[in-house]
Design a protein around this nucleic acid. Structure first.
Lengths: 331, 331
DNA sequence: CTGTTAGCGCGTTCAA
DNA sequence: TTGAACGCGCTAACAG
């Protein structure tokens, strides 16, 4: 392997001078610079990142912790991150927790040991333990999808999106609307529920407990939740909902699947809407009404924010992204 | 930051001894070991990876080059890779080319500079230039999805899967089958076409040029391709195909979408099948017949193969994974 | 069993 | 404008 020493000898200068031309630091004569550059060219020498990192304490690597890469949300965010980071020569170290919360902690430590310059956390919760740990490792970090006290973050306007979606359903004449949510530790998605409830309340519409179910993030749990809602509602007459909001498109997809199997029509018997603007939402039958959150943009913004922070310290900021309602024939 | 030197002083031993207990190498007295472990515990010291890498020339990082993370195929492979690699303490450095072939070259160089121990290349082609470059950088590398002379690889049995799928369609009475493929530089997917053509030939069935179209990897191009096939076929009577095979589920989805818009029924007017076992395939209307390739398994196998190679050099091997036909009502 | 010594490849003073 | 010398944190020979 060719090292800085070799270059120095070949260019008949010292290692220091080579280092100077490589990093554009300090004075160096035109003559020397030329000789060095020529040799570097010929050998297509590239400095060892290890040695460099050892000296400078910088790695040009950012860690990305995510719950699963197998969702459109995550993969779009990662695409956005990659696009911005690569512009500045940063690379991404992937830390996939596979929805295992403990692994978030492990990875936080691991990334510190690896000496990453910054961390992007695609979070699913904002539990105090996690926030403490983040402060403890003391590395620039930006959360995506969840906001928390004293943390940089890029989030979506879940609350207003949900209110607007609910409002749309009400405008269409629906008064009994069901809702499929997820675990309450996910605050961001929690805001979708809050928005829904408040909009219903604003219209003096009651929400029966039997219309509220929870799923995890997969399609099947949407199927199951829809089944429960229907079977529970049937006990009391006039309690069967005419519309459904699911907090993700996958859940909505599962719910739709159940309805079809039961011979119910969408949207005639049950209107359905989701969140997330899955690429497949428009190819469902009927095409699914949903909310587009611009995930790639979120990734880009997070990257920009993190880079700013890494370059000038303490650039705490909270970015809230806009959303876009996509109305289709499922409602 | 606490270093090995600090630990040595606190435990009243030399750095070497600390290193020995940390790496379980060489002899060390029970007494010394205890003292060191205690101090390590107290300070929760972790060795610097940079310094370690500088010495050992190993990073415990593998690079993963992929064309896009926004497909189920890629994300599942990455999940599989992650699962296996993390068992052995390897981390993944993500290199997303965004379908830009030049970037494959750049990343190959970059990963070398970064000193990764190995590389997984989720390839879309096997062009000679690329293969040369791979040999040039001389780092253990395994290709996923494509095979090539002298390279380790994990691939799918595209050829037989395609023959079997075609055969299934023929058994159902179809004699005019259309085919939506992709660019020919993708050899693996090319085998799907070959399998199709040979199975047709084996049954003495002709394939009209007008039934053969190409898309890129997105849904819209499937839509467009279906449109072309239909409009081209209509010119000659009795040339309208009764079935379609698309090389990916997304293409199939686009094609189905076009047919519906034209008021054609699936499978009555046109049977459709895809490849890839997209999670969404079963929620289409009608559910799509497809081929499951076990992408996560592919990732795992690739990881295992690469690890073996990194540990014992030159472990060249080619793994061909099995497939599974999933018959649904779209045919 | 243990400590001393010598680098790994680089950036960065400090004199010259 | 340049080079010598030092050290980042660690592992590996070698001698004891």
């Amino acid at each position: 392997m060719v090292t800085i020493k070799d270059i120095a000898e070949m260019a008949k200068v010292s290692k220091s001078t080579v280092s100077r031309v490589l990093n554009n630091s300090g004075y160096v004569s035109e003559d020397a610079r030329m000789r060095v550059e020529k040799v570097v060219e010929q050998t297509n020498y590239t400095p060892s990142q290890h040695a460099k990192s050892l000296r400078t304490k910088k790695t040009k690597i950012v860690g990305v912790i995510l719950p699963t890469i197998q969702t459109e949300t995550s993969s779009k965010i990662v695409t956005g991150l990659g696009r911005e980071f690569s512009k500045l020569g940063y690379e991404i170290l992937l830390a996939n927790t596979n929805l295992n919360k403990e692994k978030e902690f492990e990875y936080l430590d691991l990334l510190k040991v690896r000496g990453v310059d910054g961390i992007v956390l695609i979070a699913t919760n904002t539990e105090p333990k996690l926030l403490e740990k983040i402060k403890e490792i003391n590395i620039p970090l930006v959360m995506v999808g969840q906001a928390a006290e004293g943390m940089m973050s890029v989030t979506y306007d879940d609350y207003h999106a949900s209110r607007e979606l609910t409002s749309l359903l009400i405008d269409k004449g629906h008064e009994r609307i069901a809702f499929i949510g997820v675990d309450e530790t996910d605050q961001a998605v929690g805001m979708r529920k809050k928005g829904f409830l408040q909009e219903m309340a604003a219209h003096q519409l009651e929400v029966s407990e039997t219309w509220l179910e929870k799923g995890i993030f997969d399609i099947d749990s949407g199927y199951d939740a829809m089944e429960k809602i229907l079977s529970n509602s049937r006990r009391s007459p006039n309690k069967i909902p005419t519309a459904l909001i699911a907090v993700t498109d996958r859940l909505a997809m599962g719910a739709m699947s159940y309805l079809k199997k039961q011979g119910m029509r969408v949207p005639e018997d049950m209107a359905i809407a989701g969140f997330g603007a899955s690429e497949f939402a428009q190819y469902l039958d009927p095409p699914l009404t949903t909310v587009d959150y611009q995930n790639e943009k979120a990734g880009e913004e997070a990257a920009i924010q993190l880079i700013n922070c890494m370059h000038s310290k303490n650039h705490t900021e909270k970015i809230v992204l806009d959303y876009r309602l996509i109305e289709r024939t499922s409602i």
